[in-house]
């Protein structure tokens, strides 16, 4: 049959059918082995600690209004909260802001009172407790352009992919019950992409970027705004 077709026409037909068969894909988590990890090693800072007391870091409390994207949350190798707990621990340990740090495994209630915090602190030998509410860890896509492809047979869109991370951290003094530091950290990473070209490595890059910026903000704000109890 091929000998009856003119070469340019055959070429056009091939491109045409290929392009209409390639449909845009929705965003779904990759298979578990291919999911990205957002673990990274923070820079170690050597300085005299701002707080000489021992800090206990409570597990992050998930206060988001939505899952990561749609009804799915499992886009990473580890669950988001598990990964964030590890990063919080690493970042603050490497920050040099606290002389001693312990990771508290058992979480508090969503809105703990001072008695609950004091009890957790004493149980873990901590003088200070860090409680964090995660308010956003969401992916969203905003369209920037729509056009026809596949010789006009397929409607496609270009997107600004956005990963937004927000959390509220509070540093509480166990003895006095005073909140020494409380700030909301908001950061966003944006990458432009076509709908079907969303890749795991792009998500990994966006996540690490946004987390590094967020923790940089957190550490600067603790250094600058964190109150100290005069002994």
């Amino acid at each position: 049959m091929y000998k009856y077709l003119k070469k340019p026409t055959f070429f056009l037909i091939s491109i045409f059918f290929f392009s209409i068969c390639v449909q845009s894909q929705s965003i779904e988590p990759a298979s578990k082995a291919k999911r990205p990890s957002f673990m990274y090693k923070p820079d170690l800072v050597r300085r005299s600690a701002k707080y000489e007391q021992k800090l206990g870091i409570l597990p992050v409390i998930d206060s988001r209004i939505s899952m990561f994207y749609g009804e799915e949350d499992d886009f990473y190798r580890d669950p988001i909260i598990t990964g964030l707990n590890r990063i919080f621990n690493l970042e603050l340990r490497y920050s040099g802001l606290f002389s001693e740090i312990t990771s508290i495994k058992k979480g508090s209630s969503e809105s703990p009172d001072i008695k609950e915090i004091q009890s957790i602190g004493k149980l873990n030998g901590a003088n200070l407790v860090l409680i964090t509410h995660l308010t956003e860890f969401n992916f969203s896509r905003t369209p920037v352009d729509i056009y026809a492809k596949g010789l006009g047979a397929r409607i496609e869109a270009d997107f600004a992919n956005s990963l937004k991370v927000s959390f509220i951290s509070q540093l509480i003094d166990i003895d006095t019950g005073l909140i020494l530091f409380a700030e909301e950290i908001n950061r966003e990473s944006i990458e432009y992409a076509r709908s079907r070209s969303f890749k795991s490595d792009l998500l990994e890059k966006m996540t690490k970027d946004v987390l590094k910026q967020s923790f940089s903000d957190l550490k600067i704000l603790i250094q600058e705004n964190g109150l100290r109890i005069k002994s």
């Binding site: 449909q23 845009s24 409607i155 869109a157 997107f159 709908s195």
Partner: peptide, 9 residues
């Protein structure tokens, strides 16, 4: 042909 890209937008 599909309007999936449009819906996704």
């Amino acid at each position: 042909a599909s309007s999936k890209g449009y819906d996704e937008m």
